[in-house]
Design a protein around this nucleic acid. Structure first.
Lengths: 329, 329
DNA sequence: CAACCGTCCGCAATGGATTTCACACTCTCC
DNA sequence: GGAGAGTGTGAAATCCATTGCGGACGGTTG
């Protein structure tokens, strides 16, 4: 059926060993022989069977990728980055979606771990303890979460919030609401922390609303409490919530940004497409994916490296149409 | 390192062969032995090495999934369905994103084909000839495209357009624009065909604009020609274009749906979140993914089946806020 | 008691690629 | 010219799970 190394060997008139060497370590083979093997391989369209190779080398050349919910527009960007970088390095990517279920997540990690050289976990929802356990058994990189010294790529959430608050206070805002995401979310905790620090430093008052689900409807539900809080600006845990806010504010006839300013987080594609376009803290999603793969591949080469296994990527406030000076300014 | 069948055999006091049989064909093994093997396997946390199994059985228990662009909100829904169904059947999913590049697509098909039992191609961009060629070599299912008798899951594009036109003409519209997607897109051709037929049947005039890229900016660019065409309603090739239309219409101060009605296609999540919410033809994206995997698994069991290898999934018009009676009605 | 049958299980081959080891050959230098 | 170094190649072992074949054993039947 498929063309094997033996077929190439026969056509090239050499042994399978030589074929293998000619293709993987050419300096061990005479140039002329090497060329002959190359031609035979090309002619037959040979490419080594990865399963067979993996069996003996112990490397599968696969990485596993686990995401909570592909439907969340944040993840496709990250996945694209992972995908692209993995392909460059000749790794294939197993994808699994957990539907935000921590139990499914641990199950999938267990299943996938045996078929791959390493795992990339996007915004993992499982407990720290579980993560530590898995990390001890399998090379593993987390994205958008940090647990102790485990390898991780994160975003500068705190600095992002500082930028957002600086922007708002420069415009004259003094009273700001935060619509919180899930309490269990690491990034929510980070963002809240950064926000509190920045608000305190700027002398602004912070009103915390929520937590709500990080979905459109969560934002819709949070809009009325935000208005009731008497703030002139609101920062949402993420863009999807911010879009829900915008929708409900529009429905209630509240003008954005004239009456209230809105800031999101993530810079999902949709953020630039709505009216008014959403001011938001942009995250380099694709870079995050790429950096995660880079880190993982580094770990695979040198499993004992303890340096440079954590990286924080910068964030950038994207000033758009949903923020302006407060009404009474 | 990892626990192998030999370890289990040693602990259970039997040969590897018996372990294999006990776990895969228990009726060939005495109950008591079987139980002993089971316990040993459980105790050691054994699970067979898929690569080794694949080597001898010829089945990898993997399927490959190729999508043009995960960033397009249409695809994550499909991918989720594929993912979920594959997992139920104990298949793992290799994901590859082609970035809308047909050359990358053919390359990936070639690469992936060797590591999987079958492929699912989402909205493939390659030529019919290439598709036929690959289909002859590898079990393969297309989603959202039909080529001859090749296995495929498609949507009832024509009927979807009929529903859209019926809705508009019932509201009193007589002059309708269509913003076309890429000429190379199979679904664009289908939708245009269905639209022409429905418009003709309803006695409505159809003005075709475009083609444009199936992106937000494509819709933005199409808005002015649409207005210039003097229509009271516009149907876009997909939701993303429709959202671009809405954005540009809003920017020009054109009221939707008062001055012009807008209809999209796909029902991506965003469609329900904008103001006005977008009337659109909904596609069962997740079902499509599941159906694709079902079809593929069927093909793998019985490669020569020629019946029931093509399925068309129904569409449903979602009437929302972007359509109303025409202004002069 | 012999012949036979069925059940249960181990041996060994298999799949494809990699890698160790050893052999064959050439070249160099004493 | 023979020892030694160096280079290129093949045979065979290896990775792990699966499976055809045959052996062993217990039980049944004539």
């Amino acid at each position: 059926m498929a063309v094997t190394i033996k077929d190439v060997a026969r056509v090239a008139g050499v042994s399978p060993s030589t074929v293998c060497r000619a293709l993987s370590t050419p300096n061990l083979v005479r140039d002329e022989t090497c060329e002959r093997v190359r031609r035979a391989a090309a002619e037959l369209g040979y490419s080594p069977n990865r399963a067979a190779r993996g069996l003996i080398t112990g490397r599968t050349a696969n990485i596993g990728l686990i995401v909570p919910d592909l439907g969340n527009p944040f993840f496709p960007g990250v996945v694209k980055g992972i995908q692209a970088r993995a392909r460059e390095a000749d790794y294939a990517v197993f994808l699994a979606d957990t539907d935000e279920d921590p139990a499914a997540e641990t199950q999938l990690v267990r299943t996938l771990a045996k078929q791959v050289d390493g795992l990339v976990l996007c915004s993992p929802r499982m407990t720290e303890q579980e993560l530590r356990g898995f990390a001890a058994e399998t090379p593993l990189v987390m994205l958008n979460r940090r647990v102790g010294r485990l390898p991780a790529i994160t975003f500068a959430n705190v600095d992002g919030m500082r930028q957002a608050v600086t922007h708002l206070t420069a415009l004259g805002h003094r009273r700001i609401a935060y619509v919180a995401g899930p309490r269990t979310s690491w990034s929510n905790r980070e963002r809240a922390r950064g926000l509190r620090a920045a608000a305190a430093a700027a002398g602004a008052t912070l009103v915390e609303i929520g937590p709500v689900l990080p979905q459109f409807d969560g934002g819709v539900a949070a809009a009325d409490p935000v208005l009731a809080a008497g703030v002139t600006a609101v920062i949402a845990y993420n863009d999807v919530i911010a879009l829900g806010l915008l929708s409900r504010l529009h429905a209630r006839g509240i003008a954005v940004p004239a009456a209230i300013s809105v800031i999101g987080f993530d810079d999902i594609p949709m953020a630039a497409m709505v009216h008014p376009s959403l001011t938001t803290v942009g995250l380099p999603m694709e870079s995050c994916g790429r950096a995660g793969v880079d880190l993982l591949l580094g770990l695979l080469q040198d499993p004992d490296r303890y340096g440079a296994t954590r990286r924080e990527l910068g964030t950038q406030l994207m000033v758009r149409g949903s923020t302006a000076a407060p009404p009474n300014a």
